[in-house]
Amino acid sequence: MSGAELFFYVLAVLAITSALAMIFTPRPVYAVLFMVVNFVAVALLYLQLEAPFLAAVQVLVYAGAIMVLFLFVVMLMGPAPAPLWEHIPAQRPLALLFAVGLLGALATAIRKGAFTPLTGTMSSAIATAGGQSQALAEHLYNRYLLPFELTSLILLVGIVGAVVLARLPRQKNPTTD
């Protein structure tokens, strides 16, 4: 096993275990912290894929800004561990069964499947664009302009939705007649 492979496997295991830990921990603050670990591990994987710009953005935006926001919200709400409820008796074993089945199917598909190699290498594309962030920007604002703008619309809807749902139920205007 080469050094690069070792690096990959260590990070992959770290990413998966932190994701699982995030789901299974009953404490919200721990969950947020595990998510930060997960984001950092994924950022390091980007680094290994020769995408330092993406890695930096991942750490800055997700692990930095957004997760700090999450942490604030969790702290404000009071980090009481939520009790876990079981509504349907056979739910958990069935869920485990299906999850393992899906995992097996996907693992076989990915192991046996034939990937189409992409034309051209990353480094040559970066070289022609004159830098990594330039290459990314050219794709984002030329070819993928429409998806980029659509994302902003979706985020707008998300913001509006957060305001609508978080606002207290409207008080009836006191009538003065």
Partner: peptide, 16 residues
């Protein structure tokens, strides 16, 4: 990609 974003743009307002 547009299909995915379109489905999200359809669904997000409906969730709310």
């Amino acid at each position: 990609i547009v299909v995915f974003l379109g489905i999200e743009l359809l669904s997000f307002p409906l969730y709310i």
